[in-house]
Design a protein around this nucleic acid. Structure first.
Lengths: 225, 225
DNA sequence: CAGAAAACATGATAAAAATCATATTAAATT
DNA sequence: AATTTAATATGATTTTTATCATGTTTTCTG
């Protein structure tokens, strides 16, 4: 089995501040789990017994709102941690996690995280900083949602995905989402998401081929109102 | 000068996990500051040299969005900390803080917070937990903004304010906000906020007298669509 | 207290977005 | 490969919300 000490994913998150000793323990305890596209990793309201670290693939965090629609709160890629907050705050999960494509996760039991949090000042402070930093995009998203048009939010979503998850060899966004997924991120009706993407295509801001989307005019997308 | 060790506000936040020793130091360093309604406590992008603890009064955290409108992200009352995140993450402030009424704040220099964070495991873990818990309402607000109508958001805002800040002897909300403030919280045009509050009044969900608002039908407000 | 300024109110209209309806296309299943 | 199912697309319509306009009331200020 692969070792956490050498894992690339680890360098992207606060596990990097663990001591070699601690990492070895994590390595010994962790299990690797595979999920297929659409699989539920955990559900809202579950009690988690550990955190998940994304080794490959992309997951989404969603919440079912009162009107029955799913709202996607965040996309998570390589190195990002799932369930960290629930484990730290000792609360049930607030959101569901679903695999957006085939995904490989390392599951680290709660204890291997919580014990070092109490013992290793560096680790603890690092996690503290990362949580503090997590709040900024949360606020940013709230403001976007409140102040920007659906069209603008869609444009920003496309730009965000390209920025964070990159493009494949053909230049298309590396993350493949359905129109419904886009609607769920942007917070709009599926038909509206479809319409806006069609419009962006007509305006030559993007090129689409099925679910594959390529940003062809980044500056144009940034100017969308 | 009043002592932090006995301060009631402290019991509401993570400063409560400091040792008596640490609290005495904080007490010795802290300064009390008074702001009048409308005063800016700090601006977006400032570097903070400490955190503020609300002793009395209410403040709002806002951000100026690209379209020139202010979005209120959070209201803060007694015991809540301002600037905690910026100090922990060592980043500039993301939001501005403005006094909504006359307010009394204790200013605690950065060092008195950061040093204990590195030395006192209990304190550090407590702050960690409180940050983890802070993310939940942030997500909740995002989903509300995305999935609920302006009318629903207004109804929830009124209920929230009553729940968190309570009512005065006449039963009116304890926090006095302008219609523009409400618009900024709900994320809508000021005219829309005015219109909705008028409608709520017509429907006997609330009673208003100038800026004083009384919830007269809580259940009705909860049913608003 | 008078005058100015800000906040509140409300109508009319325009714009944005949701909903409903119905094709069409793509993907999955047998 | 044929059939079913799901996803995408687009038109028509309604609802929601923003914007513009204008008047009234309240609050502030000299």
């Amino acid at each position: 089995m692969s070792k956490c000490e050498q894992c690339i994913a680890k360098q992207l998150n606060s596990l990097n501040s663990m001591t070699t000793e601690e990492l070895k323990k994590v390595s010994a305890c962790k299990t690797t789990r595979y999920y297929k596209k659409g699989d539920v990793i955990f559900d809202e309201g579950e009690t988690l017994h550990g955190v998940f670290c994304v080794r490959s693939g992309v997951a989404k965090l969603t919440k079912l709102s009162a009107n029955g629609k799913d709202q996607t709160v965040k996309l998570l890629g390589k190195g990002e941690l799932l369930g960290q907050r629930s484990v730290i705050s000792d609360e049930r999960t607030n959101l569901s996690a679903v695999a957006l494509n085939d995904i490989e996760l390392c599951f680290v039991p709660k204890n291997e995280i919580v014990t070092p949090l109490h013992e290793n000042q560096n680790f603890s402070f690092d996690v503290l900083q990362s949580l503090a930093k997590d709040l900024r995009p949360a606020e940013h998203d709230l403001i976007n949602m409140a102040q920007k048009s659906v069209k603008q939010r869609m444009a920003e979503t496309l730009i965000y995905i390209q920025h964070v998850f990159g493009v494949d060899s053909s230049g298309a966004l590396n993350v493949i989402l359905s129109r419904e997924d886009y609607a769920s991120i942007v917070g709009t009706a599926t038909e509206s998401a479809i319409r806006i993407l069609s419009q962006f295509k007509k305006e030559k801001l993007i090129a689409t081929s099925g679910k594959h989307i390529t940003i062809t005019d980044l500056e144009g997308l940034k100017r969308v109102e």
